[in-house]
């Protein structure tokens, strides 16, 4: 296996917040084009994992690589990664359009204004282009945040609860759009239906440790007849069974 061909690889990664150990030597890999869901109970370390991959945090121990690059040090990863945190808020002192143009310009995208228009059309944000972010509904803020995360057409998408606050028609539009993009993807979510629609594989962590990894089909195979998949996930998380 060549690490550089993987979209993401984590090797024995430890992350501390003061004395609290958020990640306890976690390792996994996502191949190029792989669509993975990151599952785990509250406080499992999902957001920390995404931040480490996005280069927003540095591991205290271990190696994080994105297409062979160190996301905390190699600027190349800025072009590759698109990151959407949970409850993301764009710049509140800019309008919808200005947010998109500013980030596109900051990223050095050619024709930032055209790209902003294109993505506003794709996410049906044109009606709000001059609106202050502070005045948008939570659903429209989420759409704008999503637009900002993908404005540079990233190869790897890191999404934390991407469908939060979206109404059902918009959820369907976003799912369809994300499915068409064809990028590598790591989606953190608590909702199995969302994970099932956006991804094919599961990485399950609990208390900073990897506890299970496999395909959706494999997970479904673990359920007894008529048992919902959520129950299987809950059982795995509660048992804390380590792979």
């Amino acid at each position: 296996m060549k690490t550089s061909e993987d979209a993401v690889s984590l090797s024995d990664v430890v992350k501390l917040y003061g004395n609290f150990v958020a990640l306890k030597g976690i390792s996994f890999r996502i191949p190029d084009g792989g669509k993975y869901a990151l599952l785990g109970p509250n406080g499992a370390g999902k957001s920390t994992t995404l931040k480490l991959i996005a280069g927003l945090l540095k591991p205290d121990k271990g190696i994080v690589r994105v297409y062979g690059y160190d996301p905390a040090n190699d600027l190349e990863t800025k072009k590759i990664i698109g990151y959407l945190p949970e409850d993301a808020t764009p710049y509140r002192n800019l309008s919808v359009r200005e947010n998109l143009e500013y980030i596109a310009a900051l990223r050095g995208i050619e024709n930032a204004a055209d790209r902003a228009l294109e993505i506003m059309d794709a996410l049906k944000l044109r009606d709000y282009e001059r609106a202050k972010v502070a005045k948008l509904s939570r659903g429209n803020i989420q759409k704008l945040a999503l637009a900002l995360a993908i404005i540079h057409r990233p190869r790897l998408l890191l999404l934390d609860e991407p469908l939060n606050y979206l109404d059902i028609p918009t959820q369907e539009e976003v799912i369809s759009m994300l499915s068409k993009i064809g990028n590598s993807m790591l989606v953190s979510t608590h909702i199995m239906a969302v994970a099932g629609r956006l991804t094919d594989n599961i990485i399950m962590i609990s208390r900073g440790t990897l506890i299970w990894q496999g395909t959706f089909a494999k997970l479904k195979g673990m359920s007894s007849e008529g048992e919902p998949i959520e129950k299987v996930v809950a059982r795995l998380m509660t048992d804390g069974q380590v792979v």
């Binding site: 359009r97 310009a105 990223r107 050095g108 202050k132 502070a134």
Partner: peptide, 30 residues
């Protein structure tokens, strides 16, 4: 915030400002 307007009067255009230049353009002009 109910008293304030929903949108901004003017639009800040970042045309011609890429990378760090966009940061300076925004933060020095506003």
């Amino acid at each position: 915030n109910k008293g304030s307007s929903v949108g901004f009067k003017g639009n800040i255009s970042f045309a011609g400002h890429k990378g760090i230049k966009a940061l300076y353009y925004f933060n020095i002009n506003y």
